[in-house]
Design a protein around this nucleic acid. Structure first.
Lengths: 348, 348
DNA sequence: TTGTAAGCGTTATCAC
DNA sequence: GTGATAACGCTTACAA
């Protein structure tokens, strides 16, 4: 069966069914319901199809129709638990509309980002979801999409006019800081991730704003930067807790840029013989599953990551339908109060 | 510029450079280095290319060459931290060889798996990495790949003759159980994930074997099944810790099928006023990043997840080169001893 | 050293 | 109702 070597094609099916390729195509494409097909012909074709195990070649179809039903998803690193739900949200949104997802991990490396975007465009994905920064670092970012019809949606605060889905990191961080201030804390430190991350910048900004409004002098602000990892949180915390010697006393509360940093802070506090929340309060960001399961349970800012993925995909589909030009969705965050932040000890 | 609407194609470049499309193609494809091109011609073409912002259409290329440079990656759920590194390993292995990755989340649902496999074949991916079970549940699994040249690699114990990468879950679990037995524990419970998971079955098997060898009667075995989640670990643990009433006393050690379950066990123990490891020892599986950062730090079986992804991709590439027919790689695991498992209190 | 033309596997536009 | 046939954007003999 079938022509010499290679996969079975529509022509093999046509031959086996004794019809033309056009007829086979019609049977497969409900695209033209106005054209009727004789039942017996249809049956014959369908029998040939599954007798030969025929699978239509979507490449050829895509070439002809100028749409691949594929979208690219660019994230810094899927190993970061934060991105799991985001990716899942995009994938669910995509697959439920017949799109498939090409995943790209960039490590926030501008060179990698450029290469991936180039690849995605060469494979003519219909759209791209770009998450987690890096856009600003692409040299010729106005030209990346070129003359091609690939649409783009940004997740997070990218400096771009493309449709975006975000959260208000400044407000979220302010809320977290306000919570600590409300409990009575005055010496609050901010433990950030990479200083270049706009997310981190926004959260640091919210932190500063809250302190300023509370009348705490800028000289009392303490901000550290590192990575979005437990390791980094550990290091930053050790450094801060060991400083009540000559200079300023150690902070009574730590506002961490994500839950992993907070977890590192827990470990460092424990190793320094410092109880949480008794001697130091900790607040995280992201509300990762672990937040509910560490002891003490972690007070943290919940971010609708999965929802962000879904919405990003929605914005992308809207662009593909041509139904939307530009949109900016800002999703709500909320502070989840658990056990890790309480009023400071009265000694101060 | 360019023909009316649509993207700029090789013809536009040819026209702009005043050469034939064949010449443009030659400039782009180092495939035929035997055919020399006049330097001036090459320059003219290259100038036209980036003047027009031309991106070759990989769809057309793939259609012609019968290879897409795409691979499918099928996992249960990327939100599960276990799969992050696996996915990353596959992606790194793929991108470093010029392949891109299409991600599919199946939730272990046979129907979804079938649909995804079908989609992947229709888009003519060169290969598929299938992780995390489900293969056995596909109705016509011998026919899925049909007559097409898509190659497949299985990750984990799938009942298939395709090349596979695995770990020895039985031995790994036995080692963990032996560790607890060596510490003096006699009442050890196994907290599994889904009973249908071959991974869980293997780990339960290793647990039973170790107990048998240690001379503990089967009647003393305690195995529970649930999900791979903190929640499930919590529930199973509560149930076990609350049973030292009439019947058998509560176990002194818990062997958990993954770290998330172990974390749930921590929480349940804490809520039951039971200290870890003082009153109950806990051992996990996977060595997720948190294992090192929870307190007490978690003794757990490290699994080379990232490496499994890399190896899976290596096996796939080997098949694509035709250099390999069938291979089975079994990667080593090792028990990471931390604080969560110690000798039981002497009262027993 | 370059151009011409025949595909790759589909769908879409005409005829019949 | 069904069948030719011209695209889609590219690569690759084969000519020139």
């Amino acid at each position: 069966m079938s022509r010499s070597k290679g996969a079975v094609s529509i022509r093999d099916v046509a031959a086996a069914a004794g019809v033309s390729v056009a007829t086979v195509s019609r049977v497969l494409s409900p695209a033209t319901p106005d054209v009727p097909i004789r039942k017996e012909t249809r049956d014959r074709v369908e029998r040939a199809i599954d007798q030969l195990g025929y699978r239509p070649n979507d490449l050829a179809r895509a070439l002809l129709q100028h749409r691949t039903s594929a979208v690219g998803l660019v994230v810094p690193d899927i190993c970061n638990p934060y991105y799991g739900p985001l990716v899942r949200g995009v994938e669910d949104g995509a697959s439920s509309h017949g799109y498939r997802v090409v995943l790209c991990n960039t490590d926030r490396d501008p060179a990698k980002i450029s290469v991936y975007l180039d690849t995605l465009i060469k494979t003519r994905v219909d759209g791209i979801v770009l998450a987690g920064g890096g856009w600003a670092d692409i040299p010729d970012r106005t030209a990346v999409l070129g003359n091609y019809r690939t649409r783009l949606v940004a997740v997070g605060r990218h400096d771009t006019t493309h449709p975006s889905v975000r959260i208000d990191n400044v407000a979220a961080s302010r809320e977290a800081a306000d919570h600590l201030l409300g409990l009575g804390h005055r010496r609050i430190a901010f433990l950030g991730g990479p200083a270049t991350s706009t997310t981190v910048q926004d959260r640091a900004h919210g932190y500063r704003e809250a302190l300023r409004v509370a009348g705490i002098p800028p000289s009392k602000e303490v901000a550290r930067y590192g990575e979005f990892t437990e390791e980094s949180g550990y290091v930053m915390t050790r450094e801060l807790l060991g400083r009540n010697v000559g200079e300023d006393p150690a902070p009574t509360a730590l506002l961490c840029a994500n839950d992993r940093i907070a977890l590192g802070a827990y470990a460092a506090a424990a190793d320094a013989g410092c109880t949480v929340p008794g001697e130091v309060s900790v607040v995280g960001f992201d509300d990762t599953p672990i937040a509910r399961y560490v002891r003490p349970t972690l007070t943290t800012v919940a971010i609708p990551t999965y929802e962000m993925g879904r919405v990003a995909m929605r914005l992308l589909l809207a662009q593909l339908d041509g139904s939307t030009a530009l949109e900016l969705e800002t999703l709500p965050t909320h502070l989840v109060i658990r056990e890790s932040a309480v009023a400071p000890a009265i000694e101060a």
